[in-house]
């Protein structure tokens, strides 16, 4: 769906992007991660021609982007940036309606769409008449996402979209965005420098350094990375623990029938992540947890070795 082929972009004598290659499949959420200044934003912006590469080519749907007039191209690609960039002189509704209006969609249709988009990001239609200055950071970010989705573009470019909100709001926004993505299946290029965010969201992670993509793989594939090389060092030793946040307890629990009861074990919800389960084991100094389902009934148990076993599934 999006393919970057050998992209080079220099500013003066400095190479911001230095021969980057990356391919994002349709419906995939690719997280581009790397230290600050490594060229992530520059690479992302070549996809909607906000940056023209010195050499190399970006393809969208197999067609080079330079064959599209920039404005037309951009109206078909959702764009969310860190500082949100909501227009303070427009109401929330007018902000969301920007691209549909540029596309000349008719008024009645736009009004309905604005309401639907606000609802999608968890805001009621009444928010439509508010002003950006009345919003909290998290609310503004939701509006930013609603605005990017309003013209129903197949592709989303998101440059550290949740970078400027507090950690709790950030996790909530990530969860909500993931839920939206599961419904809409956009092709997403998501830039961040936060490893946890990458692990939570990514179908695939691309690690970038000094203008190049060093490695592009699923989050699980990164577990066995050599801790000595740059990628391993950047992801950190805790990566192996962080990755457990992608798996739910219910995916690996042993049914109650299989092992019988273990009355002393602390209990955990089946929907909790394996990272939380490991945390609970450490806190209580046990190797076995009792798992309960949504109604609080016992669903089975989870052992330390089941948690460790999930890494065996990582290539």
């Amino acid at each position: 769906m999006i393919r970057f082929r050998n992209i080079v972009k220099s500013y003066g004598s400095a190479r911001a992007v230095d021969g980057a290659d990356l391919e994002i499949a349709p419906g995939e959420l690719c997280v581009l991660i790397g230290p600050s200044g490594c060229g992530k934003s520059t690479l992302l912006r070549t996809a909607n021609r906000m940056v023209e590469p010195d050499s190399g080519e970006v393809f969208v749907d197999g067609r080079p982007v330079r064959e599209h007039p920039p404005e037309e191209l951009r109206r078909g690609i959702g764009y969310v940036i860190q500082s949100v960039g909501l227009f303070p002189h427009m109401t929330v509704g007018d902000n969301v309606a920007v691209v549909p209006r540029l596309l000349g969609i008719d008024k009645g249709e736009i009004a309905g769409r604005v309401d639907r988009m606000l609802e999608l990001v968890g805001l009621s239609p009444e928010w439509s008449s508010r002003w950006p200055r009345e919003l909290s950071g998290g609310e503004a970010q939701r509006v930013g996402v609603a605005r990017a989705l309003a013209a129903d573009p197949p592709i989303l470019l998101m440059d550290e979209p949740f970078g400027s909100v507090d950690p709790l709001t950030r996790v909530r926004l990530q969860r909500e965005f993931l839920a939206i993505q599961r419904r809409l299946h956009k092709t997403v290029l998501f830039v961040t420098h936060d490893v946890e965010e990458a692990i939570r969201l990514a179908d695939r992670i691309a690690v970038m350094r000094s203008g190049r993509i060093l490695r592009h793989a699923t989050p699980e594939e990164f577990v066995a990375t050599d801790a000595e090389d740059f990628v391993g060092e950047f992801l950190g030793l805790e990566y192996g623990v962080e990755i457990l946040s992608r798996r739910r307890v219910r995916e690996v629990l042993r049914p109650a029938a299989e092992i019988g009861s273990d009355p002393g074990a602390p209990s955990i919800r089946a929907e909790a992540s394996l990272k939380e389960a490991l945390g609970l084991m450490a806190a209580r100094r046990v190797e076995c947890l009792s798992v309960t389902d949504g109604e609080g009934r016992r669903a089975g148990s989870l052992r330390m070795e089941d948690v460790l076993g999930t890494w065996k599934a990582c290539p």
Binding site: N48, M50, R75, I81, G85, F87, V98
Partner: peptide, 27 residues
């Protein structure tokens, strides 16, 4: 005028003229 607002305007597909008239000038 905040560069982010102008970046967002262009990035969403406004022409230079539209970004000036609809975003920069009102701000």
């Amino acid at each position: 005028v905040a560069p982010e607002a102008l970046d967002a305007a262009r990035g969403m597909g406004m022409s230079r003229r539209q970004a000036f008239l609809r975003v920069q000038a009102p701000l």
